[in-house]
Simulated scan of single mutants.
Amino acid sequence: MTLVKPQTHLHVQAIDTGHLDQVRTSGTDGHGNRVRPFAAAGGGGEPLRCCLRYAREGEQIALISYAPLDHPSVWREVGPVYIHVAPCGGYRSAGLPEELATGPRVLRTYRADATMNYDHNTLVADDADLTPIIERLLAEPDVDTVHVRTVVPQCFLYSVTTR
């Protein structure tokens, strides 16, 4: 008999605003890189991990290094992410972020102990709606969190849980 977790609403987590406040205040990303502001080109090229939307032309943004797993782990990866240079309010909506809610994407699954669950990692190769795919993954009894990533560079976009 397979146990199925009861489904609840999706909880989307952008980069923590406290972490971003520290980066903005210190002027470094904590991985040895200075925050270097530049004007966004716009047109859907820079997905912002602070507010989970694409940068608008001319907005002041920066490319920093970020590790979505903040504790010692063999699955801890540091990678590039775009953020607003000034505080923007973060992501506060229900459900997946509208501008980053479709594929193509890589969905990496993690167990409750933060170990990667390779059995459920998923490639969404087309422009499919990610919501039902993520709901299905999070309904698996051995999946606690889904990291949504870009396909080619596999950069972290946001994480999703049901709590």
Rank of each mutant, 00 (worst) to 15 (best):
I61S: 06
N117Q: 13
H31C: 05
V146T: 10
L138S: 05
Y91C: 03
T28F: 07
R49Y: 00
A39Y: 01
R36F: 01
W75R: 12
C155N: 14
R36E: 13
D29G: 08
T102W: 00
G89P: 06
V81H: 02
H19Y: 14
N121R: 06
I61V: 14
P6C: 03
E77N: 09
E99P: 08
V148I: 11
W75L: 05
T122M: 08
P104Q: 04
L137Q: 03
G90C: 01
T28N: 11
L100G: 05
L10H: 10
G45Y: 07
R163P: 09
D127C: 10
R76D: 03
L69H: 06
D142Q: 11
L107V: 08
E59F: 07
E98I: 00
C50F: 09
A39I: 00
V160T: 07
H31F: 15
L96Q: 08
W75T: 12
E77I: 09
R108K: 13
G42H: 06
Y54S: 04
A128L: 12
R149L: 09
P68H: 04
A41H: 05
P153L: 02
M116E: 15
A128Y: 02
V81G: 07
H147I: 02
G79D: 05
G44W: 03
L63Y: 06
T102D: 01
N117M: 00
L107H: 11
A62H: 10
T145C: 07
A62R: 10
A114T: 08
A114E: 09
Y158T: 08
I15Q: 04
A14E: 01
P80F: 07
E135K: 12
D142N: 15
Q13L: 09
V85N: 11
S73D: 12
I83W: 02
L157Y: 00
G95P: 04
G18K: 13
N33S: 12
H120C: 04
I83M: 09
A55T: 06
E77A: 13
A112E: 14
D119Q: 14
P6F: 05
T161F: 01
D29I: 03
L107S: 07
L96I: 10
A67M: 03
L52R: 03
Q60L: 14
